[in-house]
Simulated scan of single mutants.
Amino acid sequence: MEEFDYQELEAATENFSSTRIIGKGSHGCIYKGVLLKDGKVVAIKKQSLGLQKLGDNSKLDNEIRILLSLPQNPYLISLLGTSHDCANNKVLVMEHMPNGTLHDLLHVAPTPPPWPKRIRVAIQVAKAVQFIHEANPLVIHRDIKSANILFDSNWNARLADFGLAIRLQGQQVDSDLLSPPAGTIGYLDPCYTTPCRLSTKNDVFSFGVVLLEIISSTKAIDVSRTPSSIVDWALQLIEEDRMMEICDERIILPAYLESRIRHMLHIAARCVSSEEDHRPSMGEIVKEMENFFVERVRFPIWINILDTCFQRRRRIVETPQSNTVVTTTTSAVTTGHSEFSKGKMLLREVLAEITLD
């Protein structure tokens, strides 16, 4: 891990100018920086003035410790290095994510994301959480939410902000004292009421909330909605078999994806179950989503399209040559070509958006 010169980071951010802020949180701000030595764009996390005055580096120290304990993974944010000012206040230098957050994509962007892209993001986030849960020692994030899911230059989702994360070795928390429950209202597991209730199922609940958010494009807590909690609102509609009312109404849900989105809503409902034992593990979620969404979406559609085109071509080849048949053949060729073109467009949309690295 590199130790950056603090003056270099000041120059990279124009002395931490407010115009360079690309993210804010309760513990500080994220600045976009351009390193003068090589022109590399980075994200620099600096603590709030209050924490700086207290000399409290605990959140950043914890994030450093957690990220260094985890191997590199394509679905996690990368820590590039650290630095500190003359008062020994730390800053983190992170990989820059140029395409913002999932929160902004769902709630701020003028154009809503298409359904295949939502499925792709959901699977990537699930893989990120699965990875930290299966690490040794395992990591519980404790603050999974759409604002902590960032997009790289290729629109791959990355889980970020490990300031509240905790490592577990068996049942032993990696800390002298058990940390009190923490997280963000709306995403926080209501079962997580005391330190002893800490488990991976807390993250599973938060992931379920994010899943509902991805499908509905509504916020985890929305006072204009009744009920205001996305969990209570969505579970009621799922129980009444009105699941399509949860879907983002700004864009049409393609017929070929309807059953997949219904299945995703059932997964979300299990994740946010009030009974922790009913919640699946992240490994089970990833396996189920990959098997159902990737395989069933990727293959049957293009097989059916190609089969239809091959049948048309076979009929054209087998038709005897005559003036009358030539007209029919021309019509068949035109129809076949049109359908094949539509098929190619559908294939391109599905495979480009859903196929994962």
Rank of each mutant, 00 (worst) to 15 (best):
P180G: 10
L168I: 06
H96V: 00
R142M: 04
L68E: 10
V173H: 15
C86M: 12
H84T: 02
W115T: 02
A157G: 08
L102V: 03
L150R: 07
I185M: 11
D61F: 11
T101K: 13
F151P: 03
L138G: 08
A128C: 10
P74H: 14
F131K: 09
D104Q: 03
H141K: 01
V139M: 01
I185P: 08
W115C: 06
P71M: 00
K127F: 04
P74M: 13
L80I: 00
N148L: 10
V91L: 03
L177R: 10
T82L: 02
Q130S: 15
G170S: 03
P110W: 01
L150A: 10
N99T: 03
L76R: 03
T82M: 10
I149T: 07
L159R: 14
R65K: 14
L92H: 06
A122D: 11
D85E: 04
F131W: 09
M94A: 02
P74G: 04
S153D: 11
V129D: 14
T111R: 15
L92F: 02
V139E: 07
E63K: 02
S69V: 04
R120S: 11
L177E: 12
D104M: 01
P180W: 14
D152W: 01
H107Q: 07
A109C: 11
I77W: 05
A182V: 13
E134H: 13
M97W: 05
L106Q: 05
R65I: 06
R142F: 06
L177F: 07
R118V: 01
V139F: 06
F131V: 10
A122S: 09
H141P: 07
Q72R: 15
I185V: 13
P112S: 09
Q171E: 15
